[in-house]
Design a binder for these strands. Structure first.
Lengths: 257, 257
DNA sequence: CTCGCCTACTCGTCTAGACGAGTAGGTAAC
DNA sequence: GTTACCTACTCGTCTAGACGAGTAGGCGAG
């Protein structure tokens, strides 16, 4: 099934082995979730040392193509179900049905959403967040942190910051903010939402993020920072979100004029 | 400068070494572009084998924190200058100044943009592109492929597909489409642009992408697929773009209503 | 002064072996 | 039948060494 090494090639042996396995996956010889040949089998097939085989497998893992499981083997990394996030996902019409954005969308796609590790505290935000909220450094905010899961698998951690003068003493400062989520509460408090600015970066996860999101190696994260503005032009919330990039497709509509 | 190993810890030695170096970088002891201790120096400092040191350095590279340069050393990966892409970047008012989107924006941020590896061909698009263009499989399109560079560094490769019945025989089918780029030409041809749909994914690069974009290991890519619609609701262009994720921040405005 | 070579240092690749730890299936004791 | 153990197989970590190849600086020949 796997070809032999090309001794004339100047491509490193471990790269050639990785190429062979990658092709086999692409061809469909090895399907999603299927087990790759064990290190021992590859050593025998190619007649190389274990270190060389491991380099090849390491490469595939860093590409996000394969994932090793201790004691079991190396497997073709299954692609998790993808959530599509549309740019109208925070539109009022969705909110008025009484569901927060994540839950509504996730259920629509036929999956079981849940929230986890919810904490609500009061603290001064990081400097860049304070700037976005147009607050002086050290000004108190209500900080809502939570983890979102999809069919039990963590996919996203988000931290919201709201100026304390708006949120303290309201349902926003409580673990359960009630139907429609914090955006519904903000509007009830007289802060009619006008628009959101969303900034997107992609990078490799920190060790901490890798743990909390249970990420396989070779999976980057989306880092979203969203600022909500009310109709007075005041920023009323900043939400800092880290998402497993293999679980999301983001989608936006851009104006042509 | 670097601490010693904790023999009592159950954390693997190579992870501890990577932790130490990561902390040193975070603390600022090692600055952007600075050289990490050589493998030999780390072997001596920690009293471990070279393989162990290399595992630690490999880990940092896969995190995008460091980058090795053959024969020179391992360096704290400098963060390249970032381009911010706003959601109005294809607005008509920009186009009317006679510059295509990339060039205009790049020069505004004080950098030297250039385009490279430009090819224009006629071919049937991949199936998913054909679907977005609402074309039957096998229908011909004009395919424009190019690479964008920023101060001489490649940052983005893009492939545009336009229905042949619109584009063939126009300036869109020529290497230089003229002032304002292909969107200006489309509008002149009577296809007034209405809006764009942009879909964003993030993933690790393929070997091919890694080469063309000269990516360091540990740098993911943004994969954008943008569809342009005219005022008749007809899709008139699909642009498939792969961007070095460390060189971009994407920014969008979302409606609240 | 310039060019080319030599050398020391750097990372890249590969080998051969050791021990540890997680998994899974069979088997023997209860 | 259930439980506990044993064993074979898997990947994870670490060692010690070899050779290759790219880089950069010094030094001598021209």
């Amino acid at each position: 099934m796997l070809p032999s090494l090309d001794p004339g090639s100047d491509r490193a042996v471990f790269r050639q082995i990785a190429d062979h396995l990658r092709e086999a996956i692409k061809r469909g010889d090895l399907r999603e979730g299927e087990k790759l040949p064990s290190e021992a089998a590859l050593m025998k097939h190619y007649g190389v040392a274990r270190g060389t085989v491991r380099q090849a497998l390491q490469l595939l893992q860093s590409e996000g193509v394969a994932a090793a499981e201790h004691g079991r083997g190396v497997f073709v990394r299954p692609r998790p179900p993808v959530r599509r996030l549309a740019s109208d996902r925070f539109a009022r019409r969705h909110r008025e049905r009484g569901q927060a954005a994540f839950m509504a969308e996730s259920e629509a796609s036929g999956r079981r959403p849940s929230v986890d590790m919810l904490t609500v505290t009061q603290a001064a935000p990081p400097l860049d967040i304070a700037e976005r909220l147009k607050l002086d450094e050290g000004t108190a905010t209500v900080v809502r942190r939570r983890r979102y899961l999809h069919d039990g698998h963590p996919v996203e951690v988000a931290t919201s910051y709201l100026p304390a003068d708006i949120a303290t003493g309201t349902k926003i400062g409580e673990p359960d903010p009630g139907p429609g989520g914090i955006y519904a509460r903000l509007e009830e408090l007289g802060h009619r939402l006008d628009h959101f600015d969303e900034q997107i970066e992609a990078r490799m996860p920190t060790a901490e993020e890798s743990r909390v999101l249970a990420l396989a190696s070779g999976v980057p994260v989306f880092h979203l920072i969203r600022t909500a503005y009310d109709t007075d032009g005041r920023p009323v919330e900043v939400c800092d979100t880290v998402m497993a990039a293999d679980s999301f497709v983001l989608s936006y509509t851009l104006p042509a004029s």
